[in-house]
Amino acid sequence: MTRASSKAGGASIGAPRLRARRQPLWRRPAVVALAFLSPALVSLLILRLAPAAVALVDSLFRSSLLGGTRFVWLENYTTLFTNPDFVSSLGVTLLFTVIVNPLQVAVAFFLAVLYTRRAPGSKVWRSLVILPIAVPPAVSAVIWSVIYRPDGLGNSFLALVGIPPQPFLTSPHQSLSAIIVVLSWIGVGYWMMFLIAGLNDVPSELYEAASLDGASAWRQLWSITFPLVRRPLAFVLVADTVSNLLVFAPVQILTKGGPEGSTNLLMYDIFTRAYSFGDLNGAQTEVIILVLITIVIVGIQFRLLRSED
């Protein structure tokens, strides 16, 4: 009787375990997680990876009306790098990237630090800085095209401080700076929000302890704020870099790559090569080059901003 009851008890104890091992496939955590991620994975495949694969394949071919399509291997790349217009566009893009990314991140970080202080009116000013996010980039470009007119608000403001009228968009020496100002006006508030979220996660006790030790505000910024906000800062820098390398609408609306190619960024050059010249294979080649440049720059940024756990 005892052995039978013990066997029955053992069977009753082992039964739930057996049933737990044999739960339906659709209830397993990995399957459930994959089901939730599937829309994003399908979108990534269709909208990102598939076009990139098509661009890579097209960059290895050359199409013509008379000769059809033929495999040319790396001929499209060598042709581009011997093209003075492409080389100029590449130089403008690299110069633009070197200037605009540190500028936007530095201003966004400074404003984030400023607006996390408990100062009167800081929330109002923070809202005003974030306000340009609600305006589409194309609309922002139209607004700034009016500001940059010879009789626009920009020159009117300069006249108040005794500065003569400036050409802004019609000068090859000022047009790229004018584009940088527009993009900073659009993007600084957006990146500032991420940095404010990172700053709010820094424990206030660290600042209190540093103040008791006599640390100055700059010392606290360098020894406490920077190390603890490094990851949000790295994210903002990388995302800002990718965003600025893909700039198109402000250039199309304000300068159309001019004057004298001074604002002919790679994204606009890709558009011009594909839709103005009809060189789809050359445009796809430029896309691959732009992707490679982005990967290299982002890799360097991650290496410079990586933190030891």
Rank of each mutant, 00 (worst) to 15 (best):
I297Q: 03
Q104W: 07
N83W: 06
I300E: 00
Q174V: 12
L60P: 03
A138V: 15
S64Q: 05
A53D: 04
R117A: 00
P137A: 11
S262V: 03
L18S: 09
A33G: 12
R149W: 15
T170H: 08
V242T: 15
T78W: 15
S145T: 14
V298T: 14
V291K: 06
Y148L: 14
N264R: 15
P137H: 10
E260F: 12
G257L: 15
N83Y: 04
R219A: 05
P39N: 00
V298E: 07
T170C: 11
T78R: 15
A50Q: 09
L94N: 11
L103W: 05
R306Q: 14
P164E: 09
R62I: 07
I143A: 13
L292H: 10
I179W: 03
L90H: 03
E286F: 00
T241G: 14
S156Y: 14
L292S: 14
W185I: 01
T170D: 06
V92M: 06
L290T: 00
W191T: 06
S88R: 15
A234V: 08
A35P: 01
L60R: 05
E308V: 12
T69S: 01
D279R: 13
T263I: 06
F235I: 14
P120C: 05
S177M: 13
L183P: 00
L246D: 15
A178T: 10
V251Q: 04
P203T: 08
A30D: 00
L34K: 00
V113P: 02
P84E: 02
P24G: 04
K7C: 09
T263N: 08
Y115L: 08
V87F: 09
T93E: 08
W125E: 08
S12E: 02
S307Y: 07
F36Q: 00
W26N: 00
P29L: 00
S64D: 11
H173I: 13
L128S: 05
K7R: 12
R21V: 12
Q23R: 10
A209W: 06
V161S: 09
L111I: 01
W191K: 11
P167K: 10
V87E: 10
F109V: 05
V182S: 04
D279M: 14
S89Y: 05
P29W: 00
F110E: 08
L246E: 14
R17W: 08
P164V: 11
T79L: 12
I133A: 09
P172R: 01
G68N: 04
F109P: 00
G91Q: 14
L37T: 03
G198I: 01
A239S: 12
S38I: 02
T97C: 15
Y77D: 00
T97H: 15
R19P: 05
L221M: 08
T78C: 10
V236C: 04
T241P: 11
Y268N: 07
L94Y: 13
A50V: 15
R17E: 02
A8N: 01
A197N: 02
